[in-house]
Design a protein around this nucleic acid. Structure first.
Length: 443
DNA sequence: GAGGATGATTCCTA
DNA sequence: TAGGAATCATCCTC
């Protein structure tokens, strides 16, 4: 029940005839005397009460006029002093409610979390720190710039919404507080309202608004948590590499079977090469750590089940040999049409011969400058011979799939480890040539 | 839906 | 710290 209702109830207990009040409160004797004009005064008070009760049903102008009338009413001072007295008595019962509430632990938790996530507090670093933490939690923080920036962008969006809403709430709170304070000041002309009471009312309003703010903070926290879990899920989610990327990695692997440990540079090159070839959708470039993972998995799985991979190895050997054959044939043709001693070193003739190192990588011209034209010119005959040998081997493999395979696990030693790079396997581990992606220095 | 393939993660070791 | 090994989780094919 509000103040006004209480007061009205209290006034309702006034014994108009005897000026006594229920509950021991006494109405000060009004002007005039008891007796003959008692009915008149009764009528007066009845009028006043009626006007007060119906004032809210009237239009603003009418209410203003009526309020003015009441303020100027001859009974007003008496009524006001009664109200003061009632106030005095009832004030005791509400004093206990004025105690300051201790800070809400839930609110503190939310505030702390928003601060930690970089939503609340200073913008600088917060969000990216959280993103970095999320990235670090799932490993390979440096390779995830796309997801990272995506996360930050989303977090910034949440932050903006949060601050806009917070501002709106604060503005609404201030406006409402001002409005209520004005209203109370206005009302204090007709009923006693102490500054403390206004203060208390302001406190109530602020508490109400802070509970709304808490809901906003809670929603924001939930949004951040969802964003974070999605971010981590997306990073954890496995996606198969494209066929081209797998081919590139496989070709490198089988052409370095004796020592399938690509150096950091080689991994970078492979990652770059795979990412260029790959089209797995937005943000699905292949990273260096993914290349490392791939080689790690491949080595183990190859070692565990060489038989199963034999066919794949042969396939890549044949493929590489055919590519080499085409390249050499083109070079030979080129050599014949141009000067035999000064071959054309145009970019289209980029290749290495089968026994000139990282065959595949050179063929693919990873570095863009692996043309071996001069060597072709000088050694063209011997290379053609070698190639003939390779091609004949390939044909032999095709003719007899079961027994005569190009690839054998020469790279693996008796202990199940990979042989030294110094002992290359027959076809697939030649010495490297310029322009190829360099594998480990031990190779 | 089962089962194999495969990318990622974790733990351990040299 | 890189790599091996085991394992997990998801994708893909049948």
């Amino acid at each position: 029940m509000d103040e006004q209702a209480r007061i009205m109830q209290a006034l309702g207990g006034v014994s108009l005839a005897g000026h006594s009040v229920q509950g021991g409160m006494a109405l000060p004797p009004p002007h005039g005397h008891e007796g003959a004009d008692g009915d008149g005064r009764k009528q007066d008070i009845g009028d006043i009460l009626h006007q007060i009760m119906t004032i809210t049903d009237q239009s603003l102008d009418e209410a203003q006029a009526k309020k003015h009338g009441l303020n100027c009413h001859r009974m007003k001072p008496a009524l006001f002093s009664v109200l003061c007295e009632i106030k005095e008595k009832t004030g005791l019962s509400i004093r206990g409610a004025q105690e300051e509430d201790p800070p809400d632990p839930q609110l503190m938790r939310l505030d702390n979390m928003l601060l930690a996530e970089g939503v609340a507090g200073p913008e600088k670093g917060g969000g990216s720190a959280a993103a970095a933490a999320a990235a670090a939690a799932s490993g390979g923080a440096s390779d995830n710039s796309i997801e990272h920036s995506d996360y930050r962008a989303k977090l910034t969006q949440i932050r903006q919404i949060y601050h806009t809403e917070l501002e709106k709430y604060e503005q609404a709170c201030n406006e409402f507080t001002t409005h209520v304070m004005n209203l109370l000041r206005e009302q204090s002309r007709t009923r006693p309202i102490s500054p403390k009471e206004i203060e208390r009312m302001v406190g109530i309003i602020h508490r109400k608004f802070s509970s709304i703010q808490m809901q906003l903070k809670q929603s924001t926290c939930e949004a951040v948590m969802i964003l974070r879990s999605r971010f981590l899920d997306a990073r954890r989610k496995r996606r198969n590499f494209s066929k081209q990327a797998t081919e590139i990695l496989n070709e490198y692997f089988y052409s370095h079977l004796s020592n399938p440990y690509p150096s950091e540079e080689a991994k970078e090159e492979l990652a770059k090469k795979c990412s260029i070839t790959v089209s797995q959708g937005v943000g699905s470039t292949i990273t260096v750590s993914q290349v490392s993972n791939w080689f790690g998995n491949k080595r183990i799985r190859y070692k565990k089940n060489i038989g199963k991979f034999q066919e794949e190895a042969n396939l890549y050997a044949a493929k590489t040999a055919v590519t080499a054959a085409h390249a050499v044939a083109a070079a030979v043709q080129n050599n014949q049409t141009n000067s035999p001693t000064t071959p054309n070193s145009g970019s289209s003739g980029s290749f290495n011969l089968p026994n000139s190192g990282d065959m595949f990588m050179s063929m693919q011209n990873l570095n863009g400058d692996s043309y071996q034209g001069a060597q072709v010119g000088a050694n063209v005959q011997s290379q053609v011979d070698t190639l003939r040998h390779v091609i004949s081997q390939t044909a032999g493999y095709n003719d007899s799939l079961g027994g005569n395979s190009l690839y054998s696990p020469h790279g693996l030693n008796a202990n199940g480890g990979w042989q030294d790079a110094g002992t290359p396997s027959s076809v697939i581990s030649p010495t490297e040539g310029p322009g190829s992606v360099h594998s480990d220095t031990s190779n």
